[in-house]
Amino acid sequence: MPRFTADNTILAHEIITRYPRPKSALIPLLHLAQEQDGYVADDAMEHIAELIGVTAAEVLGTCSFYEMFKLAPVGEYLVNVCTNISCLLVGGEELLHHIETRLGIKSGHTTEDGKFTVEDVECIAACTEAPCLQVNYRYFSRVTPEAADALIDDLLHDRRLDEIPKHGVLARTRQQIPAATRAGNAVPGEAEEPVWIRRARAEVSP
């Protein structure tokens, strides 16, 4: 049951320093854990709790609220098919059923080889591109059953790794805040009136 690796622990500390209060880093650190292991392991939650100074129960409390966090391993490819209103009107449900039949599983389940998990999801903000789906949160628009089949064939052979990293990896570009140009956190109880506001106020009423 994994905790953060040494490299990820350094990264976790760096993420925590961006926030005025450490607990704000909770969701970013859960994403980091899921990126490392493909799901959020119990030990990872314990480690996060230590890093930000809360209890493991609090970490679980937050974690369990959000749909993206998986408390057990899921498929390498998480196929999220939208069936909400705009997609429903133009074949979203039929697309979901096609994919379920093709993979031999119902939504919410994972194929025996651990390759695919299918989910019947809510609106993913691609309504004008309906019916749409995401694989590991990468978008596919106006998906026909044939296009879905071709996509699944590619994924079976890991032919789209450039485009679709394994489950858990979201942004492959990380924000870097260079120490030299950082403005610094605005901490409650410490931060004063910003200098540009004070100056502007002084200029109006010297």
Partner: peptide, 12 residues
């Protein structure tokens, strides 16, 4: 001076 911090949600 301003820091802008990118933060992601997690599905809600």
């Amino acid at each position: 001076s301003l820091d802008v911090v990118l933060h992601w949600g997690a599905g809600a």
